[in-house]
Simulated scan of single mutants.
Amino acid sequence: MASLDGKAVVVTGAGRGLGEAYAWQLCRAGAMVVVNDVDAEAATRTADEIRTGGFPAIASTHSVTDPEAAAAIVDLCVDRFGRIDGLVNNAGLTYESLPWDDDPQQARELIEVNVLGTIYTGLAALRAMKDHGSGSIVNISSGASFGQRTLGAYSASKGAVASLTYSWALDLEAAGIRVNAVCPVAYTRMAWSSERVRRKVFPEHTPDRVAPLIVFLLSDDSEGITGQMIRCNGPQLHLVGQPYFKAPILERDTWDTDTVERAFTEVFQAHLEPYGLEKRLPPRLRDWLTPATA
């Protein structure tokens, strides 16, 4: 097992579910952990149980949606454990809604936690890590970033986390800080609330089956690994390909609506991309692939 002896780690959203599993396995690997959750009862319970198990842990009930509170989470780690070596940006919200039924306030709250919370806590952590020239940040993204029905706001937020991960990895490599993203799939309270998810995520896909990946990415054993998005659903572990510019690439001195239309009709029509996790074909590509009937 990868060793985290002497390392201090913050896990947000660690009061239950995946975050709780991460905190436990990080401690078992030797880390000192800040258990952060806005649910004070859950954060305190988890931290108390970890300490009862003989491991160093402290609870934080700060909200990641406030930059000063997010910075206070990192400050607590540094004050109590002397430094911060790792951050798991796990705090997140989700809900399902068709676009025309979506609630703007609910969407705002989700973005504040999933995107801004990741940014605020990450900025505080990376500034502290930069002072001692090393560290590892694991952001929690999702395969939903490819596009998933009834999860528009959530999918957008996790796509933002993926892009943030790639950008931070570029910016922070010279500072000795690695940044990766994990797309976990596990049977948690989030899964219980969704009939669609329950059909695909089974009770045996428990959070502790994802946690070893987090331990590895925070350990020195993963030195040299940065800018990656990795999916783990328990049985499966695989890398997620990054977006790319797809050939053919057409060039003209100038484009107008007629030449753009010809580009799609004569060339791009055969290269349109399936979209969403279900890899749905665009209608024009479906029509092009289906021979016309007399």
Score class of each variant (00 low, 15 high):
1 M>D: 13
245 F>V: 15
134 S>P: 02
175 A>M: 10
42 A>D: 00
8 A>S: 04
183 C>L: 00
12 T>W: 08
85 D>G: 07
6 G>W: 10
153 A>T: 14
195 E>L: 15
151 L>P: 01
115 V>Q: 04
146 F>N: 07
122 G>L: 03
159 G>D: 10
189 R>T: 10
188 T>D: 02
280 R>A: 15
52 T>V: 13
110 L>V: 05
39 D>H: 12
273 E>N: 06
156 A>M: 07
114 N>L: 06
60 S>N: 09
113 V>L: 02
114 N>K: 06
199 R>S: 13
80 R>T: 13
256 D>M: 04
187 Y>P: 02
203 P>D: 00
196 R>Y: 12
133 G>I: 02
150 T>G: 07
212 P>T: 05
107 A>T: 13
153 A>L: 10
25 Q>D: 03
241 G>V: 14
62 H>D: 15
2 A>Q: 07
31 A>L: 09
261 E>G: 15
205 H>G: 00
127 R>K: 11
189 R>M: 10
207 P>Y: 00
162 A>F: 06
260 V>W: 12
92 G>D: 04
276 G>D: 08
218 L>I: 08
40 A>Y: 13
64 V>E: 10
181 A>W: 05
131 D>T: 15
12 T>R: 03
81 F>S: 07
138 V>M: 09
50 I>F: 10
181 A>F: 06
192 W>K: 14
